[in-house]
Design a protein around this nucleic acid. Structure first.
Lengths: 189, 189
DNA sequence: CTTGACCAAACGAACGTTTGATAGGCTCGT
DNA sequence: ACGAGCCTATCAAACGTTCGTTTGGTCAAG
C-alpha cells in the first residue's frame, strides 16, 4: 500500500472515532509513522485530506459485497432477513467509513456531503438489485418507495447501534429479522 | 432565561453545527456575550458542560409536541402521513438538539450515549401512543416491530436530510407521505 | 464583610501550517 | 562511465494561533 493510501486510511479511521475536527494532522501522521510535514507533501490542507479520505473508499468497487445467488429457498421474510443481515455485516466490517459518512451527513460541509448523497443513491440501486435478484417472487418489495424505506430503516439502525458496534452483533441480527418480518408482510395477502 | 440555561442552549447550538470537539469554550462564551471564565463558574469543565447541554433538553416536557385529537378522518396512509410530517416539523424546529444527539450517537462518549438510548425508547413509546390514538383502526401499525421500523425510518431520513434542513422542508413532506404509504399497505388486505 | 456573578489576563499544550534541510534516485551532457 | 543537476520523499524545528483551564481580581447585593 502506498503512502498516500496509508494516510487516507489512517485519516478515515480517526475521523470515525474522533470526528473531523477531533482528527489532528499530528495524529494522522502518528498512525502512519511519518512526520506531519509529509502529509502536506501529499495534500494541500487538512480539509482536502479529510475530503479525499471520504471520497477514497467510495471509489472502490468493493464498497458493497458481491450479490447473492438468485433463487435461494426460504420464505420472503427469511431471505430479506438474510440479505439485511448480510448488509449489516458488510457495513460493520468497514464501520470507520460509515461512521465518517454519517457524521459528515450531520454537520459536514457541502463538499463532503455531495459525494455522500451520490453514494446513498448508488447504495439504493444496489439494494434494489439485490432484492429483485434474491426475492423475485415478492413484487411488493420491488417498489422504489419500499426500497427507499428499507434503506432509511437501515440507516436508522446504524445510527443507533454503530457506537457500540463491537458488542452489538446480535442486536444487528435481531433488527435485520425484525425489519424483514415487517416488510415481508407487504407480500402476504 | 437564566445564565446557566443560556449557556447550555448556546453550547447545544454550536454542537449541532460544529460537533463536540469543534465547539470551543470561547465560542460558547461569545454566543452568550460573557467571558470564558464565566463558563467555569457554572461548569467544572468543557466535557461536563456539553454533557449537561445534551441532558438539558431531554428533561423538558416539550420535547415532543402534544398528541393529535383522536378519530380524524382520512385514509390510514393520510393520517399516518400527517403524523410523520408533524413529527418532522417538530424535529426540524429543534434541529440543533437532534443534530447533537445524532452526532453523539455516531462518535460520542458513553456518558452522552446512555441518555440518548433512553430518549430513543421514550420517543418510540410516544410514537406508539400517537399511532394508536390517531389510527386506532389499523391494528397492523400497532405492532411494536412496525413502530420500531417506522422510528428507524424516521432516523434514516433525518440523517440524510438534516444538513440541508433549511431548504428541505418539501423533501421531508414527501418522505413522510412515502413512508406512510408503504406502512399503510400493511393494513390493506 | 461575606458571597455570588463576572471579567481581563495569562498559562502551557496542542493545533494547522511553513520553512529549510537531507538523502536517494533519476536524467542529462560529456 | 560519471559527475552535475534535479526531483521526490521525508524530516526536525519552528511559526503564529487557538485551545481548555487557572489565577487574581472587581463589584453589586445581602
Amino acid at each position: 500500500m502506498d503512502r498516500r493510501t496509508e494516510i487516507l486510511d489512517a485519516a478515515l479511521g480517526l475521523m470515525a472515532t474522533e470526528g473531523a475536527s477531533g482528527t489532528s494532522m499530528r495524529a494522522v501522521a502518528g498512525v502512519c509513522g511519518v512526520n506531519v510535514a509529509t502529509l502536506y507533501h501529499y495534500f494541500p490542507s487538512k480539509r482536502e485530506l479529510l475530503r479525499a479520505a471520504v471520497a477514497h473508499r467510495q471509489g472502490g468497487d468493493d464498497l458493497f459485497a458481491p450479490p447473492f445467488p438468485e433463487g435461494l429457498p426460504g420464505s420472503v421474510a427469511d431471505r430479506l432477513g438474510a440479505l439485511l443481515d448480510h448488509i449489516f455485516v458488510a457495513l460493520l466490517s468497514d464501520d470507520a467509513f460509515w461512521r465518517s459518512v454519517l457524521a459528515e451527513a450531520i454537520h459536514g460541509d457541502e463538499d463532503v456531503l455531495e459525494p455522500l448523497l451520490e453514494m446513498s443513491n448508488a447504495f439504493e440501486a444496489v439494494l434494489a438489485d439485490w432484492i429483485r435478484g434474491l426475492i423475485p417472487d415478492a413484487p411488493a418489495l420491488h417498489d422504489p418507495a419500499v426500497v427507499r424505506t428499507i434503506r432509511h430503516s437501515l440507516y436508522g439502525v446504524l445510527v443507533e447501534y454503530l457506537p457500540q458496534a463491537d458488542n452489538q452483533r446480535a442486536a444487528f441480527a435481531e433488527r435485520a429479522r425484525e425489519i424483514a418480518s415487517v416488510f415481508a408482510r407487504l407480500e402476504e395477502r
